[in-house]
Simulated scan of single mutants.
Amino acid sequence: MAEEVIVAGWMDYEPGDRATMLKALTELGRRTREAEPGCLDYAMTADPGDERRIRVFEHWTSRQALDEHFATAHIKEFRAAVAGLPRVGVSLTAHTVAASRPMR
């Protein structure tokens, strides 16, 4: 059985670019969740305390599912659409899930 993967972290954009990037990421997330069975969750959200920062959370059934995500048509379209919006900072980490339990 493949181990699940969680990608977490943040990406920074110029304050004037963040809203445009978030709109593109919202569409990318919708398409990813709808079209990729290996995607368990995909969320990019504005950090309320930093006008540049977008928080990242992705949950995948396996490393293979995450790798396949980068070859999809919708990720290629997304990258082309936002090519003019450079990141000014980034910290993203892929975590292999060893165990999970529900929290109450």
Rank of each mutant, 00 (worst) to 15 (best):
R87G: 04
K23P: 07
S100D: 06
V90I: 10
Y13K: 09
I54Y: 01
V5L: 12
E77W: 06
T61G: 00
A24H: 13
E34L: 15
L40E: 04
R18W: 04
E4I: 08
C39M: 02
M44I: 03
T32L: 04
L66Q: 02
H59T: 00
E68W: 03
F57Y: 04
E68K: 04
P37S: 02
G29T: 11
E27T: 13
G16W: 05
L85G: 06
L85E: 08
T72D: 08
S100E: 13
A43Y: 05
E68N: 04
C39V: 01
V56R: 01
I6V: 15
H69K: 02
T45N: 03
M103K: 12
K76Y: 02
L28K: 15
E34G: 12
H74V: 14
W10K: 11
W10C: 09
I54D: 03
G49Y: 10
L22N: 05
A2Y: 11
T20H: 04
L92G: 08
G89R: 00
C39Y: 01
Y42H: 02
R18G: 06
R18I: 06
A46D: 06
C39D: 03
R31Q: 15
L40D: 05
D67C: 04
T93L: 12
A35K: 14
R79N: 13
D12V: 07
V82A: 01
A81W: 00
G49C: 08
M1R: 12
V56Y: 00
L28M: 14
S100V: 07
E14A: 14
E68A: 13
G89A: 05
L92D: 05
V90W: 04
T20V: 10
M1Q: 11
W60C: 01
Y42G: 00
P102N: 06
A80P: 05
A35T: 15
D67H: 05
R101Q: 10
A83F: 12
L92A: 09
A35G: 14
I6S: 07
I54S: 00
R53Q: 10
R31S: 15
T26N: 14
D17N: 12
V90P: 01
A98L: 15
D50L: 09
V5A: 09
M103S: 14
I75M: 13
R63Y: 08
Q64S: 07
R18M: 12
F78I: 03
Y13R: 06
R31T: 14
W10L: 07
M11S: 10
P86Y: 03
A80Q: 05
T96I: 12
L92C: 06
R101T: 08
M11C: 10
E77Y: 08
V82C: 04
A73Q: 15
E14M: 10
T96A: 13
A73V: 14
T72V: 09
M21T: 10
G38Q: 01
R101W: 11
G16R: 09
R101N: 07
L85N: 06
A35L: 15
T61E: 01
P102T: 11
D17C: 09
F78P: 05
S62Q: 00
V5C: 09
